[in-house]
């Protein structure tokens, strides 16, 4: 689990090179747009995966924290603050509100925790729609400036008007998020998450404080969600309550679960695959959501571990078929 075979790393390297070179072979602005958005959603999804997949707490307020980040950046940059200052501040606010909400709600478990966080999400969404002085009400905030240009000595500056620049911005933050999450999950700290998820009484007995551990995971996840929201606001240029709604949460949740829960790559794959499938289904017109809904049910029944889990299953079958005698230990940690 900790050390990966060489070709595994080679695959990631290839993917990284492909991602870095994407602006040179992307066919049109439409696909470019989907990719940029998927990067942002992947950031939010990975952080949701931290709290749901690795810490085992089904938080349904994730969309709301994404929204807090989005509104935070919108309000602060409209007030004249630089994006580069507003973004960390908005993420911090998101994390702070996360701590405030986490303290009462983490007293509950399972379904109850899911519903309490869902309620918080809905409340924040209603507030976003009605606190007109701060959030602009249902019209939201529009005309949000793009990230301010970064001056580079001797070379001029990087501005964010083009899709290419926005793409690299999103990619940078995604890689940063994945790096941090990877380090976190495979650290002692990450192990305590999983120990607690798998057996809370046992974890408690060996000296892990479940409440503090859960709270830490919740706060970190919300920090990252807020950051994703902040970048989203700046790139899309307008925020309305829909950015903080529970529908956003459900989308992230679908990405996490269908991508493959508790795997870093799963969240990224989910955040890419589902929006692309949605776009591919556009030709169905009125029947699109009908088919998508049915598809969701079928996929979750036949691939309960998501895409990543599905590929693993497939792989195991192939291995079993090739080496009928060898018993392959499942790589799935649940």
């Amino acid at each position: 689990m900790f050390t990966k075979p060489f070709h595994y790393n080679l695959l990631y390297l290839l993917l990284l090179v492909a991602a870095l070179l994407l602006p040179f072979y992307v066919p049109d602005a439409y696909i470019f747009q989907i990719v940029i958005m998927s990067f942002l959603f992947a950031i939010a999804t990975s952080s949701m995966n931290l709290i749901i997949g690795f810490a085992g707490q089904a938080s349904l307020a994730h969309g709301a924290f994404f929204g807090i980040g989005a509104y935070g950046v919108a309000i602060m940059t409209k007030a004249g603050l630089s994006f580069w200052l507003a973004l960390p501040l908005a993420a911090l606010i998101s994390a702070g509100i996360g701590a405030v909400i986490g303290i009462p709600s983490l007293r509950t478990r399972g379904h109850y925790f899911a519903i309490v966080t869902l309620c918080f999400g809905v409340i924040l969404w209603i507030v976003a729609g009605n606190w007109i002085q701060l959030t602009g009400g249902h019209n939201g905030i529009f005309g949000i400036p793009l990230p301010s240009s970064i001056p580079i000595p001797f070379l001029g500056e990087i501005d964010f008007y083009s899709q290419t620049a926005q793409y690299y911005l999103a990619l940078t933050f995604l890689l940063l998020t994945l790096f941090v999450l990877h380090r976190l999950i495979y650290s002692m700290f990450g192990l305590t998450f999983m120990a607690m998820r798998n057996n809370e009484p046992l974890a408690d007995a060996v000296g892990i404080d479940p409440f503090t551990t859960k709270l830490m995971a919740f706060v970190i996840a919300n920090f990252i969600a807020g950051m994703a929201g902040g970048i989203y606001a700046s790139i899309i240029g307008a925020v309305s309550p829909s950015a903080a709604s529970h529908l956003m949460t459900f989308n992230f949740l679908i990405y996490v679960i269908l991508g493959g829960i508790a795997t870093l790559s799963g969240s990224v794959i989910g955040a890419f695959a589902i929006p692309i499938i949605m776009e591919l289904l556009q030709f169905l017109g009125d029947y699109r959501m009908l088919i998508f809904g049915a598809l969701l049910v079928v996929v979750i029944i036949y691939f309960p571990q998501g895409f990543v889990g599905g590929l693993r299953q497939l792989n195991q079958k192939v291995v079993a078929w090739r080496q009928p005698k060898q018993t392959e230990g499942a790589n799935v940690s649940r």
């Binding site: 602005a29 439409y30 309305s240």
Partner: peptide, 26 residues
């Protein structure tokens, strides 16, 4: 925004209608 990009780059649309302010702004 995705739809607009699609309409412009796939279908060659140069005129796009939208009926809600929340989506008009972006």
């Amino acid at each position: 925004v995705n739809n607009a990009r699609r309409l412009v780059s796939r279908s060659g649309a140069r005129i796009i209608y939208n009926p809600v302010f929340n989506t008009i702004a972006p």
